[in-house]
Simulated scan of single mutants.
Amino acid sequence: MNTAKFIATPVHSSWAGGLFLVFSLALSGCANSIQPVRPAVYDFGPGLVTGTAASSAATRAPLIMGTVESTPALESLALHYRLSYANGQQLKPYAHARWSMAPAQLIRQRLSEQLSQTRAILNPGESGLAGTAAPATLRIDLEEFSQLFEAPAQSVGLIRLRATLIQPSQTPRVIQHSVVVRRPAPSADAKGGVQALTAATDAAVLEIDNWLRLHAP
């Protein structure tokens, strides 16, 4: 019986090196095709577009509006939510959604837009018109600003803040007002949370405006 003989053919180093290069390039191409997910960026939208601010801004006393202060957890651009049915004490950020500015800045911008419809809004350090009384100062402390899930498919936008009005005089008068507003989210995701928090902010801003009409007319 004849015995078949198999002769092992050596693999040339140049061919092996080329195969390794092709394999490396293929892996590199797969890695480059995986693009990082960019977070969606949100704000409160264009706001009140009425065109009446210039004509009616002088109907009420000027007001100095300070910065809106917030807790350290709310100083970032993160869009936060809470799961009240699981652990309501834990504030969690959405991975692929964020605000265009910190919530405190967005709220100050929205509040300024509303108040400037009927009065001049001044920054800290600015003074009113010569010969007029010194303007009062409004300060805002933002305590809560999150999408609160009461069930996996049910959530609200929750905002809680404290407004402080300081009226200048020999003995400055300080008046405070707490605001808590909840608005339902149309969907159980970041987009729904943004819509709910925008609606809650607008309602809080209107409440502050009405409060100021009584104490700083």
Rank of each mutant, 00 (worst) to 15 (best):
N32I: 14
E75W: 01
A216W: 05
G66P: 01
I208N: 01
P39Y: 08
R213N: 06
G128R: 07
G88W: 11
R183G: 01
A216C: 06
I107Q: 08
F149Q: 08
V174A: 07
K5V: 14
S76P: 00
A130M: 09
A86V: 14
P62Q: 03
P36K: 05
P36I: 12
I121M: 14
N32P: 00
P152F: 13
P72F: 00
A26P: 01
R162E: 09
E75P: 01
M101L: 14
V37E: 04
A102Q: 07
S146C: 10
E69Y: 04
A40V: 12
D141T: 15
S127G: 01
E143M: 05
A104L: 00
K5W: 12
P217V: 00
P62R: 02
E150C: 00
M1G: 11
T52H: 10
A104E: 01
A136Y: 07
L148F: 12
L77Y: 11
T118H: 11
E207N: 05
P172E: 03
S112I: 12
H177T: 08
R183M: 06
K92H: 05
R160S: 14
P168W: 07
G66Q: 10
E207M: 09
Q176S: 12
R182Q: 13
L122R: 02
G51L: 10
P168A: 06
L21C: 05
L165Y: 11
Y85W: 12
P152V: 13
A185R: 07
L212Y: 08
I159D: 03
A26I: 11
T9G: 00
A203L: 09
V179L: 12
R108Y: 05
K191T: 13
R60D: 04
L111A: 04
R38E: 10
V37F: 02
L165W: 08
L138N: 09
A53C: 05
N32L: 15
L206Y: 02
L138H: 06
I64E: 06
D209A: 15
T198R: 10
P46R: 08
I175H: 05
G193V: 09
G47C: 04
S155K: 06
D209V: 03
H96Y: 15
R98D: 01
D189M: 07
G125T: 13
Q154Y: 13
L165M: 07
T67Q: 00
S76V: 00
A8C: 00
R182E: 11
W15Y: 08
V181C: 01
A151L: 12
G157E: 13
P186Y: 12
G51I: 11
P124M: 12
L161F: 00
I208R: 03
V179W: 07
P124G: 13
I107R: 09
L27E: 11
R162M: 10
L48W: 05
E150H: 11
A153M: 15
P152Y: 14
D202E: 15
T59Y: 06
Q147F: 09
A73R: 02
P168N: 08
E143R: 11
A163K: 07
I64T: 13
A120G: 00
M1L: 13
S55A: 15
L19Y: 06
L161D: 07
A61Q: 13
A102S: 11
H177A: 07
I34V: 13
